[in-house]
Structure formats: structure tokens, C-alpha cells
Amino acid sequence: MDFGRTMKYQREAEPDWPHQLKQLPGCERLFSCIQCGKCSGTCPLSIYMDYTPRRIINLVREGFRNEALSSKTIWLCASCYACAVHCPQDIHITDVMYMLKREAIQHQMYPKRFPIPVLAREFYDLVRKRGRSSEFWLVLRLAMKSNPLILLGMVRTGFWLIRTGRLSLRSERIRGVHQLRRELATPKEAQ
């Protein structure tokens, strides 16, 4: 048995952090949370999470950045927005989760080869380069960069997808890819 202590010292908190987050689109009402737990109750994935969405909101609000960013919760969030439509305080919890994912990716606060941020990254690059995503190439690259063994498990599905004509090996590229790149290159305003 592990008898590690769970106490949190106030010095571990970053009290300014949630106030910065509050400025981001969708995160305005962060401090209105009444901790009712309806988000967790309606979330189809909360039962797999280390912190329920409600607890994530409170970790953020109290400035426990490290715990929030290294939680499994933010990666399990499938962006289904159930919490957002249920929240009695109209907190856009999905947007808060996105914000945490962005920050965690930025600071590499996830296990190496953890597939979700890898997928996000690969998807991001593919679309940037070609303007469209290709499910086949995406899965291939995800496997290469996370765990190639997962391809083994996909053989059956892949077989069926090819057989039913649903797997396109062609990676499409849009004509206006340069136009798109110019658009994406437009710098953001400084906050």
C-alpha cells in the first residue's frame, strides 16, 4: 500500500493563471461554477476520468495548474458538448477542456507517445499542408508516432473498409492550398 500524502500547499497554486484563462473565448464564466456536478453526471466519459469535469473546473479555478494539465480527463474529453448544454451556469466546459489541451500540448505535459495529442498534431500538420485530412494517412502516421502495434488491431477493420470502398489511399490536396497557407500565416493579435 502506498501512503503518499495528498495535501496541497497554497504555494503550489498559481492564482493568476485562472484569471488569465478567464480572458479566453468560452472561459469567461469559469468563476461562476457552483460545483453542482451536472457536467460530470452527464459526461459519457467521466467514469473513466481521474478528475471529473467538475473537479477539473475547481482545479483550474484554484490555480492548481500542474494537476489540471497533467490529468487524463482533458484527453478523454471527446468534445461532445453535453456538459456545456447542461451546465446551469452556462460555463462552456468543452472550451475550457480545449484550452487545457492546448496548454498541455504547448508544454508537453503528457506521456510520450500518448496518442491523442499525437493525433491532434498530425491532423494539424496534414491539413496545413494539404488543406484536407485523409483518414488513412492520419491513422498511419498516428501509429508510427505513438504505437505501431495498434495497426495490428486495425487489420480487420481496414480489410472491411477497403472491401466496402470506404478507405481512400489517395491524399487529397486542395487547389487553393497557397491561399489557405496565406490565411493561416496571418499573425494573431497580441493578448
Binding site: 471527446a78 494539424y124 485530412s133
Partner: peptide, 13 residues
């Protein structure tokens, strides 16, 4: 072009 889906939001809104 691709809509960006959910993955883009997670990298760069």
C-alpha cells in the same frame, strides 16, 4: 478545405 474538426481546437483555436 478541412473544417478543422475537434483536433484543431486542441492545438490552435
Amino acid at each position: 478545405n478541412c473544417c478543422g474538426a475537434t483536433s484543431y481546437m486542441a492545438i490552435d483555436e
